[in-house]
């Protein structure tokens, strides 16, 4: 019980920092299970309509630029790497290094959103945004609208999670500078890292499911 008076990061209802750390870690994983199901509802809906309207989904997918999608995948994986390094720096108690890795993660996160907004703007110019200006002319227009609805809801929810993640980093940075995190107490950094990796994993599935359907050369549009 002596650690109570030693570490100011220890909350009153825990016995020691190890218990507090384990609880925070488990709570975060439980929260991520929740996040999986949150996106899972969208993925299920996507699966149903892809099964029903495969032709429309192939046509819609071919309107998405593979280059930007792949680049965004690379950017996001890189940011996953930087945040993993940030957690490692926190584990080792290297505050300066932690700060740098978090800043890099933030830059990559903003870059991702920048690329995403280029794509969104492109869709707007082509009249492919359901609810705003959907002017696609095709016998399958209704089904294509559903494809683009899924595209925007899924990538939009993902982008919202990115924005929340960047907000969390803005919240963490002053604490990092203040030296609030040590090798003994770094749960917020670790949990943020878990969150960011989760957002990365969602994109890992979104990219092939949205951008890479029916790209085989034999498909005639």
């Amino acid at each position: 019980m002596s650690s109570h008076s030693e570490n100011p990061a220890l909350q009153h209802h825990f016995d020691d920092l190890k218990q507090q750390y384990e609880a925070a870690n488990m709570g975060m994983w439980a929260f991520l299970a929740q996040e999986i199901m949150f996106f899972g509802g969208l993925f299920s809906g996507y699966a149903v309509y892809r099964y029903k309207y495969l032709a429309a989904f192939i046509e819609g997918s071919n309107h998405l630029p593979i280059f930007w999608g792949a680049l965004n995948t690379v950017v996001l994986i890189a940011s996953s790497f930087t945040v993993a390094m940030a957690v490692r720096a926190a584990q080792l108690g290297r505050a300066k290094s932690l700060f740098n890795w978090i800043i890099s993660t933030m830059v990559l996160g903003v870059a991702f959103l920048g690329i995403k907004s280029i794509e969104y703007a492109d869709k707007y110019h082509h009249g492919l945004i359901p609810g705003a200006n959907f002017t696609y002319d095709s016998p399958m227009a209704g089904q294509l609208k559903i494809f683009f609805s899924f595209y925007f809801v899924m990538t939009g929810m993902h982008a919202l999670h990115m924005i929340i993640g960047i907000g969390l980093m803005i919240w963490l940075i002053p604490k990092i500078r203040r030296g609030a995190f040590t090798a003994e107490y770094y749960s917020p950094i670790e949990n943020f890292g878990l969150y960011w990796h989760f957002v990365d994993i969602v994109w890992i599935f979104l990219f092939p499911l949205l951008y890479l359907i029916g790209r085989e050369p034999w498909i005639q549009l």
């Binding site: 809906g45 359901p130 609810g131 705003a132 609208k145 559903i146 609805s149 899924f150 809801v153």
Partner: peptide, 8 residues
């Protein structure tokens, strides 16, 4: 769906 009529 209600607000934007996205069609799902």
């Amino acid at each position: 769906e209600r607000v934007f009529h996205i069609g799902i």
